[in-house]
């Protein structure tokens, strides 16, 4: 349960920030990205953990990268076949799951030294911790930026008639950083022990 809050990969360990920010202008791509990362983390953790006694220490990084890259290709081809629009929208960022530091971080820190089942659960938990942050950021940005949730308009028309305007700034990339900063602020106000000196 730790990866969801106190050991959250994005907010506390600063892993996997790159893709966390780029896909969060809307909820749908964020959701797909979160699921893809969870699947890849879980299975790469499982595979590396099964192989952990057979991998020579010196070349472990390349072995890990190959396992992860193979899994990402499977996910990518699956999306290309069944959700083509989503595949186009995520484009490069699907490939970038390979270099997502969450994966390497968990493989190095956990899967190399633990049993397969534990590693699998650890992978799922970290993937979920990542997805939660993605979803919060995407919800804030989509609601304020386009006035929609999952593509449905939620802000009543009367608001617009009264002069309410969508905040176009929220759609632009830099705002993702600031939204994450606000989440960190809230989270660290609640968990005082995480604050840096």
């Amino acid at each position: 349960m730790k990866p969801l809050n106190k050991q959250n990969p994005v907010l506390v360990l600063v892993l996997g920030v790159c893709s966390a920010l780029a896909v969060t202008a809307q909820i749908k791509p964020a959701l797909v990205m979160g699921i893809s990362v969870t699947i890849v983390t879980a299975f790469s953790n499982l595979i590396i953990s099964l192989l952990r006694n057979g991998i020579p220490n010196r070349i472990r990084i390349i072995v890990q990268l190959v396992v992860v890259a193979a899994l990402v290709i499977i996910v990518e081809q699956f999306l290309k076949a069944f959700a083509y629009d989503m595949w186009k929208q995520l484009s490069v960022f699907l490939g970038l799951i390979i270099t997502n530091c969450i994966l390497m971080g968990r493989l190095e820190a956990f899967a190399l030294g633990n049993k397969p089942l534990d590693s699998f659960i650890d992978g799922i938990a970290n993937g979920l911790g990542y997805s939660i942050v993605l979803l919060i950021v995407a919800t804030v940005r989509e609601l304020l930026g386009s006035g929609t949730l999952l593509g449905f308009t939620v802000i009543p028309r009367s608001f617009y008639e009264a002069g309410y305007v969508n905040n176009g700034l929220m759609i632009l990339p830099p705002m993702a950083l600031i939204v994450v900063a606000c989440i960190i602020w809230v989270q660290r106000s609640i968990n005082k022990d995480l604050q840096e000196k």
Partner: peptide
Amino acid sequence: VPAPLKGLGITFIIAGLMGIAFM
């Protein structure tokens, strides 16, 4: 800097502001 924002938090905000400047 407010205590909860120290370190990581403020870094994100700086990066965001620099991003806006670069826009």
